[in-house]
Design a protein around this nucleic acid. Structure first.
Length: 452
DNA sequence: TTAGGGTTAG
């Protein structure tokens, strides 16, 4: 940690004797924190002059997202020992999120108390974060209680926070629970169009479109007019639950009734038709929107590119990508990830690698852990362990830290090959218990399979 | 972070 503040870790070397030290480089600091053998050896000689900013701290916390204990240790060191720096509410929220993911409830509450003592929170967002973690770890009742008691922690309950807790429950598929709470409290909080949209979306997320339609009917009866978001939500619900014909008819009805259909409507239809295999119709809708004067977004292109990769040919997907560039669109990480995946899926590994290079050099996009994990998975599955390990090494050096999924993918690739020397490599790459115990966002099946 | 569209494969 001493080295945290030496020149080599800083973004600029212009630190003269009388100048303030330059800001630390988030990638270098993150790697240093990560490479400390244990959290206890990470001591805190934090220079009082280091110009920390919320942006920098947040950037480091995000980089260490899959290495929660280390991220929290860094946060605490800065909070307790650095007199010139006070954490921002957004950094607190990130730290609380990390602690909640690790089920460190004592830490969560001490951070909330600390926010309150500094008079910078907690905000409704803070409670939304904690509630989300409760709901997604099988404790929806705790999430509800948190909302019901939030006023005791200095945060008022209002319609916005009511809508938020309902949305949190719905997004973690606890729709029945959300619906109960909604029916109990909709009078007290004067449920509005947002409240109803959240519930409609909830039923759609678990593919119960008849219930969603029921809520839609009910909101009309109660004098709350559905808006375009309501209709787009319902439309997506039909396609998601495989009701392609109903989705199409709903779309025609939306056009007929002049709901002011927008780019989201069209993107939903392009994607919905495409994934059900109706590629030609999807392309027709894409062309139609342009004729109708609704400009496709990057997301619309991504939808089309994805369905072409999956249900047509990757060559046609590449054509859409090139066309997109000609029109002046700036592809994003999703665009590249979808295309690279399509190329790898078609066995075009070299072209996939080339697309990754373009992503970074021409597209100005940093490869994400999704990019790496996907490529490592394809290489592992076909026995190209060396290629997979090469990418794994690049990951660390480019500031995109491997997560638990990465390790699982690599290990399973090695098990497939069953070579003893791979196991030695695995040891050398630091597949330690500590890393493997760290939290994984997606909770991969392989975690259980290879639990150490 | 009060609501809607675009990332794995199995």
């Amino acid at each position: 940690m001493n080295r945290l503040f030496t020149k080599s870790l800083c973004t600029s070397s212009a630190a003269g004797a009388n100048l303030k030290p330059p800001p630390p480089d988030p990638a270098a600091v993150s790697k240093l924190i990560l490479s400390s053998p244990t959290t206890t050896t990470l001591q805190s000689p934090l220079s009082p002059n280091t110009p920390w900013t919320p942006h920098l701290v947040n950037s480091i916390l995000k980089r260490l997202w899959n290495h929660g204990p280390k991220a929290l240790h860094f946060f605490h060191l800065l909070d307790r020992r650095h007199r010139n720096y006070i954490h921002s509410p957004s950094s607190f929220n990130l730290a609380i999120d990390i602690a909640a993911r690790l089920h460190l409830h004592t830490t969560v509450w001490s951070l909330i108390r600390r926010m309150r003592s500094l008079r910078i929170g907690p905000s409704p967002k803070t409670f939304a974060i904690v509630a989300e973690r409760f709901a997604s770890s099988g404790k929806p009742d705790k999430a509800v209680n948190l909302f019901l008691n939030m006023h005791e922690h200095g945060c008022s309950q209002d319609l916005a926070s009511f809508n938020t807790i309902l949305d949190v429950l719905c997004k973690s598929k606890r729709v029945e629970k959300a619906y109960e709470l909604f029916k109990d409290l909709r009078g007290r909080f004067s449920a509005d169009v947002v409240t109803y949209n959240v519930i409609v979306n909830g039923w759609c997320l678990i593919k119960r479109t008849p219930k969603a339609l029921e809520v839609l009917k009910e909101m009309v009866e109660r004098g709350i007019s559905p808006n375009l978001t309501t209709y787009n939500t319902m439309l997506k619900g039909f396609f998601r639950s495989g009701q392609v014909r109903q989705g199409w008819e709903f779309f025609l009805e939306m056009k007929k009734r002049n709901c002011g259909i927008d780019v989201v409507t069209y993107t939903t239809v392009v994607h919905g038709l495409g994934v059900s295999g109706e590629v030609k119709r999807a392309k027709k809708v894409f062309d139609e929107m342009i004729r109708e004067g609704v400009l496709p977004s990057v997301a619309t292109h991504n939808a089309l590119i994805q369905v072409l990769c999956k249900k047509d040919t990757v060559e046609n997907a590449v054509l859409v990508f090139e066309e997109m560039l000609r029109k002046g669109y700036e592809p994003n990480v999703t665009t590249y990830n979808v295309l690279i995946r399509g190329l790898f899926h078609a066995g075009e590994f070299t072209r996939g690698e080339e697309m990754m290079r373009r992503m970074e050099e021409e597209g100005g996009c940093e490869a994400s852990f999704q990019t790496y994990n996907m490529m490592i998975r394809y290489y592992s599955e076909c026995g190209e362990v060396e290629k997979a390990l090469g990418l794994f090494e690049r990951m660390g050096s480019e500031g995109c830290l491997p997560n638990l999924d990465t390790y699982n993918i690599l290990i399973s690739g090695m098990f497939v090959r069953k070579r003893s020397e791979d196991m030695v490599v695995a040891g050398n790459q630091g597949f330690s218990k500590e890393i493997l115990r760290s939290q994984s966002k997606s909770g991969s099946r392989l975690t259980k399979k290879f639990r150490l």
